[in-house]
């Protein structure tokens, strides 16, 4: 899986990000050079914020962040050529009413002409065996199909790195497997963010995020058993009673 994808370098140096005076991420430092990087953590641990910081959609309040040497929040042009992000909910990602427009949008943003983008859209649909989706209205697609549209739209831009923010949450097993297969074939490095240890088995670099801080890091084979044990232990307690802040 992703064995052919060239590795990318991710550097976070004491990154802090606040919302309403509360530190969502606090002094997070990550050094990784890999094609398969995982981030695991509970709901509310700051995973999605970390994904958005890496994608350059948010800017760190303190600290520095670089993906293959670029600052994705400041250099948006370079960021578009370097990385893509898949949101958890495809409804939050799809901007256009038809599949072809959705796929063409990013290509036009990369500077392709209307005709170039049109040809490229047909090529990418054919590569995914979805040529017949070209004119399909997004509103008629199933949830899994919408996920695939998002994936194709981002991969069409040929990023070196794909940031996945819980991309398979809520999908059934066959849909997950099919999407995972499409992803593996794409040959792109991934930062995969998930609460589910099963998604991240076999990842060589794994970061465990807990209440906005890195709690542990290492290969999945070391970190995941500890994470799973801790999650099971917490499951016996009642921290649902705790309010944030």
């Amino acid at each position: 899986m992703n064995g052919t994808a060239p590795p990318v370098s991710i550097h976070l140096d004491a990154v802090t990000w606040q919302a309403n005076g509360r530190e969502v991420l606090c002094d997070v430092s990550i050094q990784a050079h890999s094609s398969r990087i995982g981030v695991v953590g509970r709901n509310g641990s700051g995973k999605s914020t970390l994904a958005r910081l890496m994608a350059g959609l948010l800017r760190p309040d303190r600290g520095r962040l670089g993906i293959d040497g670029i600052d994705p929040a400041r250099d948006r042009k370079a960021a578009l050529r370097t990385l893509g992000i898949l949101f958890q909910n495809p409804e939050h990602q799809i901007i256009f009413p038809t599949v072809c427009e959705e796929l063409a949008f990013g290509l036009r943003q990369l500077g392709q002409s209307r005709d170039q983008a049109g040809d490229e859209v047909r090529r990418i649909l054919a590569r995914f065996d979805r040529a017949h989706w070209h004119d399909a209205p997004v509103s008629a697609l199933s949830q899994g199909q919408k996920h695939l549209v998002c994936m194709m739209a981002v991969l069409a831009m040929r990023p070196r790195l794909l940031i996945l923010d819980e991309p398979f949450a809520g999908l059934d097993i066959p849909t997950r497997r099919q999407l995972q297969r499409q992803l593996d074939r794409a040959g792109v490095a991934v930062v995969h963010i998930s609460h589910d240890p099963a998604d991240l088995e076999g990842y060589d670099r794994l970061f465990w995020l807990d209440r906005g801080r890195i709690a542990a890091q290492g290969p999945a084979s070391e970190v995941l058993p500890r994470f799973t044990a801790e999650m099971n232990r917490l499951g016996e307690l009642d921290d649902l009673a705790d309010l944030a802040g």
């Binding site: 578009l80 939050h92 901007i95 831009m157």
Partner: peptide, 11 residues
Amino acid sequence: HVAEALRARSA
């Protein structure tokens, strides 16, 4: 969400 999606794929 749309604003974020636009930012994610446009310069």
